[in-house]
Design a protein around this nucleic acid. Sequence first.
DNA 1: CGGTTTGTTTTGTCAAGACTGAACAAGGTG
DNA 2: CACCTTGTTCAGTCTTGACAAAACAAACCG
Lengths: 181, 181
Amino acid sequence: MTVSEPTPVPDRSAEPAAAAEYALHAAEERFIEGMGLALEEDRLPRIAGRLVGLLIVSPRPQRFDHLAERLRVSRGSISTNTRLLENMGVIERVTRPGDRRDYFQINEQPGLLQRVADRFRDRQAMAEEMKQALAPGADGGDVVGDRLDGLIRFYAILADSLNSMLAAIEEAGGNSRSGAP
Amino acid sequence: MTVSEPTPVPDRSAEPAAAAEYALHAAEERFIEGMGLALEEDRLPRIAGRLVGLLIVSPRPQRFDHLAERLRVSRGSISTNTRLLENMGVIERVTRPGDRRDYFQINEQPGLLQRVADRFRDRQAMAEEMKQALAPGADGGDVVGDRLDGLIRFYAILADSLNSMLAAIEEAGGNSRSGAP
DNA sequence: CGGTTTGTTTTGTCAAGACTGAACAAGGTG
DNA sequence: CACCTTGTTCAGTCTTGACAAAACAAACCG
């Protein structure tokens, strides 16, 4: 996971007191970009990934327009991607009385996790259907049947470990949960 | 995983004897298309996925040109995608003495699996790096730290179960192994 | 009511990547 | 040697999707 340095690297040699501060910021930047790439591999827009990253490292809900300027993207993109993540259950839109603006935080319900688990289940089902149609003792030694069994087991294990993880999180109650992308 | 029926659906009412045969073929078609979509989600070209699907359900190595006509795709695409999968260790190119043509079969070494596991490890490392940079007792209750811990655990578990699976396969020796995409 | 803030939707541009078809290379074979 | 066969590579087309910018809607404020 390699992420290039954020474009303008401020000269920090002048203010040694801010060194730790700076290191944190750089790490954050890297993490956010990393999440952008990571979630992009899961077929989400890069901005959505960055949003998740930013919200993970944000202790408090973030304002809509703040997201736009922090990530340096258009408000339109924020709107689209927040809604996307909202529908997926990954982030949550929160409001405050007497405040017209929207805030966002990562949702404690692990939406993405469920999603991924379901995908594995689908693939497992697909392999099982194929196995079904194959009829029992076919060609010598039934190579194909064995392969399909392997595939089925593969997807099953992945889906299972995700599901048991989900259950564990659910059971653990309100603490230390994440959107787990 | 929904896959539309292959374009020309032959009328099988006339030859009842071929019904089972037909059912198998239809299931194969569905499986192949399904693998196309499934591997596409893993950032591989659709044709590569179909190739994997086809080779999984093929008891014997398949000829290069046969692949092209079976999937109704140009030879160029077959060439590109077979090489891609070959480099990934997912399929294997085999030849026969006195035969100038190339044959392909799915490789027994689970290349894709390793790949996926590595990806999870990378993400785990990313989250750990962020956690490092965060310094210990930060904001009240350290929400962010807890979230990162959850994330780290998440990726770790996935990578671990994949790795233990890989080990199990390795140990099981020569039987019932698959490219496990 | 006009004007402002906040967020959404739409429109257009751009880039990435998949795929085809044709040109190409490298071996066989008559 | 001319001519297949087999596979690779290259150039061009097409599709997809992300994104920005602008138009838009809605709520609020004066």
